[in-house]
Amino acid sequence: MPEPAAARLIAIHPAAPPKPAWGQSCNGCGVCCLQEPCPVGALLSLRRHGACDALRWSDAAGRYHCGLLSQPADVLPRALRPLSGWLSRRAHRWIAAGIGCDCDSVVEVEVEDQD
């Protein structure tokens, strides 16, 4: 029997929607990208662990978005910014946008004491 994954603490925006069940539509909870970047995010963040640098919170939408989709010029290195439109269109497929939640993490909410 495989060992359960070690518990990790990630900071999630308090207004973020709850994580959907595996396979359900993405709702922008951000859990997957806050844990570790996808392969495209790893290239942008220059790391394989920790929160993806391309992840963006939207107050207006009340959810997280991939910056490569919503704000490509803000997350791409200067040399790639002229290709931001082309890269953003392809990123939908690269990150499997719209396919459904593929994060099987279990989320436990901890509320900080207000004392």
Score class of each variant (00 low, 15 high):
C103R: 00
L83P: 03
E112Q: 13
G67L: 00
I99V: 15
E110P: 02
V109P: 04
V107R: 02
C101H: 03
G67W: 00
P72R: 00
G100F: 00
V75K: 04
S88D: 13
P72M: 01
V107L: 11
E108W: 10
L76W: 06
G85D: 11
R78P: 02
E110A: 12
V107T: 06
R89I: 10
L83H: 06
D74M: 08
V109D: 05
R81F: 08
P82M: 08
L87C: 09
A97Y: 09
W94H: 06
P77F: 10
V75C: 01
A73N: 11
P82Q: 11
W94A: 05
R81P: 05
G100D: 12
W86M: 14
L69Y: 02
I99K: 13
A96P: 06
V106K: 10
I99R: 12
L87E: 11
L68I: 15
L87F: 12
P82C: 10
L83E: 12
P72K: 00
L80C: 14
P82H: 13
L69P: 14
H65A: 05
A79W: 09
V109A: 06
I99Y: 07
L76T: 07
V107W: 13
D102A: 04
D104H: 09
V107F: 07
R90E: 15
R90F: 13
I95T: 13
L83R: 03
S84C: 10
E108C: 06
A91Y: 06
E110S: 03
S88M: 10
D104G: 14
E108V: 11
V106C: 09
S84H: 15
V75E: 00
C66H: 01
P77T: 01
A91W: 05
V111I: 15
Q71K: 02
P77S: 02
W94F: 15
A79G: 05
R78Q: 08
A96V: 06
E110M: 10
P82N: 10
D104A: 11
H65S: 04
S88Y: 12
H92I: 04
R90S: 12
A97C: 12
L80E: 06
W86H: 06
A96G: 14
G85E: 14
L83V: 03
S70D: 12
E112T: 11
R81N: 07
A97R: 10
S88I: 07
A91N: 05
G85Y: 07
P82A: 12
H92L: 09
P72I: 00
S70N: 01
H92M: 05
A96Q: 09
